[in-house]
Amino acid sequence: MSVTASNMEVTSKKIVVTGALGQLGMALQEQSKHHADFECIFLARKDLDISSRDNISLVLNKHQPDVVINTAAYTAVDAAEDDKKQAFLVNETAVGYLAEECKKRDCALIHVSTDYVFDGNKSTAYVESDKPNPQTVYGASKLGGELLIESSKISKYAIIRTSWVYSVYRHNFVKTMLRLGKERDSLSVVNDQLGCPTWANDLADTILTVARELKEDSSGVYHYSNKGSITWYDFAKAIFENAQIDVLITPVTSDLFPTKAKRPKNSVLDTHKIKKQFQVDIPEWEYSLQKMLKGL
């Protein structure tokens, strides 16, 4: 598909997005409307099962994309502790299949990863070169996927680690707080885990910018979240204030909410690299939260 403007031919990029029914996949569908130079094909699991190499090959042969954006993942952090086989199948093995099939077709791959590849013990923001040390099955499986992309020697790829993703879609912290705030007079929220929320729409815009600009010499690992650092308690407080919900919130320590999978104490990601390389705008977390709440 091509259009002519000012005597110059501009060829649109064809993009296949996996995990179309997840919150990031749905945010990409929304934000892709603002990127007219892309032809985006959104595929749910029934359309593309990334755990099947044959299915990947069949679908990529059919669509012949320039870029694959992989948002499909096993994201049930606690369930993964007991479902290790499935977590590694989706987050590691399947990602390796995608990388190899994209490499065969000289197709770029953008893969979404997570702050859980780190142990959370660093006192400052994590940069891309920090050594991963996952403490959970989920984190280990996501790191495994990253390593298979790198070892595939694919020429154009971006691994984008993110954290605390929320949106108007699916289940996430913001929607859970809004529901609980209407059901209860008081809540206890963890105040000893530090991170930065990421509005899925901002992340989606950044991914599409990377898709447009990605080249061999800009391939690699990147971090993206909104700007700032807060605790879950800070985040909950801001949600209720902006939504004008009157609820008493008590800050508590993580040991009052034991979970199967260990949560990182520090999930703050340094985003300077992606901002400099792709000239992306990174809004403050509270500004993006306000925009998201207006869309509900």
Rank of each mutant, 00 (worst) to 15 (best):
I282D: 04
A125W: 04
V190E: 08
L180F: 10
S2E: 14
M292C: 14
L58N: 14
E286W: 00
Y224E: 05
F235D: 03
D255C: 11
H34G: 10
V247G: 06
V174D: 02
A94V: 05
Y157D: 03
W232C: 11
A158G: 12
R105I: 08
K291F: 00
K14P: 03
S52Y: 10
I15R: 00
D54H: 09
C107M: 06
I110P: 02
Y157W: 12
A76D: 12
E284D: 15
S113G: 10
F278A: 07
N7I: 03
D78C: 10
G220V: 11
S51R: 12
L48F: 08
D202Q: 14
V210Q: 01
D270A: 14
K215Q: 14
A211D: 02
K237N: 12
V117G: 00
V190W: 03
E128L: 14
N226L: 04
A73S: 15
D54E: 15
K85N: 13
V112S: 01
Y74E: 07
S254N: 13
L28G: 01
V247E: 06
P283C: 09
Q135V: 11
S219T: 10
R263S: 13
D205I: 01
V3K: 12
N70V: 04
K153N: 15
D119E: 11
C196Q: 03
S219M: 12
M8P: 00
L194D: 03
F42C: 09
K33V: 08
S288L: 05
E81G: 03
D217S: 15
N191T: 07
L143T: 01
T71E: 03
L43W: 01
H35A: 14
W232K: 15
Y138W: 04
T231L: 08
T4N: 12
K142M: 11
K175W: 00
A80W: 01
T250Y: 13
S155Y: 05
S163L: 09
Q64Y: 02
A99M: 09
V137F: 01
D217V: 07
Y74L: 09
F257Y: 09
P264Q: 15
S152G: 13
N133I: 05
V3M: 14
G181P: 03
F240Q: 04
I207F: 02
I207L: 15
S32L: 06
K275I: 08
G228E: 03
D217Y: 14
A76M: 09
G19K: 02
A79M: 10
A76W: 00
I239Q: 03
E284V: 10
Y224C: 06
H63V: 11
A44R: 07
T250P: 03
P65F: 06
K33I: 07
Y233Q: 08
Q29I: 10
D281E: 13
D54Y: 05
F38C: 09
T11P: 01
V210T: 02
F257S: 10
